[in-house]
Write a protein that binds this DNA or RNA. Sequence first.
DNA 1: CGACCATTTGATATGGATCAAGCGATGTGG
DNA 2: CCACATCGCTTGATCCATATCAAATGGTCG
Lengths: 224, 224
Amino acid sequence: MSMQAMAVSETFSRNGKRPIPPAPVVGLFNLMGAPLTFARNEEVYGEGEPAEYLYTVTSGCVRTSKILNDGRRQIGAFYLPGDIFGLEAGDEHSFSAEALAPTTVRIVKRTALTSRATCDSAMASQLLSLTVSELQRTQCRVLLLIKSAQERVAGFLLEMANRKCTANEIELPMSRQDIADYLGLTIETVSRTLTQLENACAIALPTSRRIVLRNRSALARLNA
Amino acid sequence: MSMQAMAVSETFSRNGKRPIPPAPVVGLFNLMGAPLTFARNEEVYGEGEPAEYLYTVTSGCVRTSKILNDGRRQIGAFYLPGDIFGLEAGDEHSFSAEALAPTTVRIVKRTALTSRATCDSAMASQLLSLTVSELQRTQCRVLLLIKSAQERVAGFLLEMANRKCTANEIELPMSRQDIADYLGLTIETVSRTLTQLENACAIALPTSRRIVLRNRSALARLNA
DNA sequence: CGACCATTTGATATGGATCAAGCGATGTGG
DNA sequence: CCACATCGCTTGATCCATATCAAATGGTCG
């Protein structure tokens, strides 16, 4: 197994704040089976179910979430086409996963990966690389969560823009409530903050789901 | 490589909220060299330095931290004897590491692990397992950070108590400021919250660094 | 058109930050 | 051995960012 998985710094800026999707893990994708489709809001798997598969998004968008015992919902992550999910460690899923929009995914059995990785060090390396990426993203979340609402929202927009590198206009697949639960804010605060950013000419909001980044450096400045 | 690294659920309670140190990764420890010693507040490595080594704490305690560009400090993690640190991904360290107390660590070169893991699937598995543990802990941090000050402090105390399984009395190796920076709170709020928990008979504070858990279930209840 | 849902906006409340002072333990020099 | 400076922690008073409660707006679909 090569150590490339632990040497992913080229996917990050110097200060570790700007995650970019890791290089595609080709071997893993080759093991993926036929596509499954899910409707908007359909559950891909539930919290507590045995974690038998790894999933990759081929189209659409998936969110992972869990309900805390006081009723609050925490979003684990959003997964876009090309992303792999379902490996949050453990024999059973610690989050549930739902499609945010009509979505297709392809799956591979974990046991298949097990046996393959035992003898295939490239595959083992890919698994490690995947986990490291997930760790990186989670660490960036931690950095966001200790900051102000403006910084969180700005950081979120930059993260989404960097992931789908489609110039400066992004179509958000998730609702305000999803964003709020992801950032540990309320829906009202997210909405107000977006309005503030618009008034500051940092972004434009042609529609509520479509966001134009007018001034990335202003956003990045917020994102201390 | 076995899939055991992805099957660490036995180290977690059903709801994924109570991390316990993973099984020791013996092979990795065997590669570790002679002990190095560090004085209180001495730097083990600095942010931005090349990440050449992996470290294990043999005695004392280490914290990783980074200074944000607005002057705030973020603590990455605390490492106790038996813990391994220095693998926060990337060619260079994204955090610095400092000894909280007189500390000894042992180290192994990353390149040594690289070559070893390429042909030794057990070693590869250990690396994955280690990264998964780190991911798990970071995810627990995220859950803490979206909660109230009481919940964060209670969760922190339970985490520390679970790691050093020394009954119900724990000696905190870190200052209030370290705790505050770890939890994204101020030192005053941490102090006040501990006082509240003491008044509620959930804990006792024989000295400021020594904490007795009087009522774990009350703490856990806070820790939604 | 009308019902419904997501989003925005407004008014008020509150938890934690900030500013400021006091306290206790530890260590140092006289 | 004591006086005093220092450091880490606690406590108090006030302020502010975000939550909460409430209502208006706008877009979508039958």
